[in-house]
């Protein structure tokens, strides 16, 4: 495993920890999009079906279980926890996220590495992950005051995606037979979606003012 991949996985892990910290200790999910969290739960459930068929490493299995368990428990907290759910910005979080799922499924049926159930689900999870952040970005834009933890959560997620792109470039040049077009294209699309957020985040950091996205 190269340094970019490890750093990418760690920023992903930290992003989840930041979100769990906000939910568990502050008992708040203000500014967090339930729509995005539901999409992530679906992304990991459909991608990690190979937990039952392929063993890669202990690291791989543990990380998969962490991302599965955390994404499902975050959705549960936001929907059902009696304190946390009250802080959910339901009226602002109106993105019709299920509309993203059908085109992703159709695309997965058309473009996959092999036409089998697991491979179609794998491609679907990649297409869906590419757009899963959209409800969160829309919610951020609508929220007047973005708190630090929410800003850091999205920053860490974006960093994770950018590091994975570096990991692919590194692997392409150092490994033979390492080609994953579906992962690359959907991953690059996903990373580009964060570009705008990055821009405003670093502007606010540089000028030492609170993060606010233009309406």
């Amino acid at each position: 495993m190269n340094i970019f991949r490890l750093a990418g996985d760690m920023t992903h892990l930290f992003s989840v920890l930041v979100l769990l910290l906000k939910i568990h200790t502050i008992k708040s999910c203000a500014g967090i999009s339930l729509k995005t969290q539901e999409l992530y739960a679906i992304v990991f459930t459909t991608r990690y079906l190979d937990l039952f068929t392929t063993y890669i490493s202990l690291y791989n299995t543990i990380m998969k279980l962490i991302f599965l368990g955390s994404s499902i428990s975050i959705v549960w907290y936001m929907r059902h926890h009696k304190v946390v759910r009250r802080s959910y910005d339901k009226d602002q979080d109106t993105f019709r996220h299920y509309l993203l799922m059908l085109p992703c499924l159709l695309l997965a049926l058309l473009i996959n590495e092999k036409f089998t159930f697991l491979e179609v689900m794998w491609a679907f999870s990649l297409y869906l992950e590419a757009v899963a952040i959209l409800p969160q970005l829309v919610l951020l834009q609508r929220t007047r005051n973005i708190d630090n933890l929410t800003g850091q959560y999205v920053l860490l997620l974006g960093a994770y995606r950018a590091l994975y792109v570096l990991n692919w470039i590194y692997r392409y040049f150092t490994e033979e037979n390492y080609v994953h077009w579906i992962t690359w294209v959907s991953g690059i699309v996903q990373t580009l979606l964060y570009a705008d957020f990055f821009y405003y985040y670093f502007q606010s950091w540089k000028n030492n003012v609170k993060l606010q996205l233009p309406a």
């Binding site: 991949r5 992903h12 794998w122 037979n177 390492y178 080609v179 994953h180």
Partner: peptide
Amino acid sequence: TKDSAVKDEL
């Protein structure tokens, strides 16, 4: 084929 590389990423 090249496309059948192992899916070892998360």
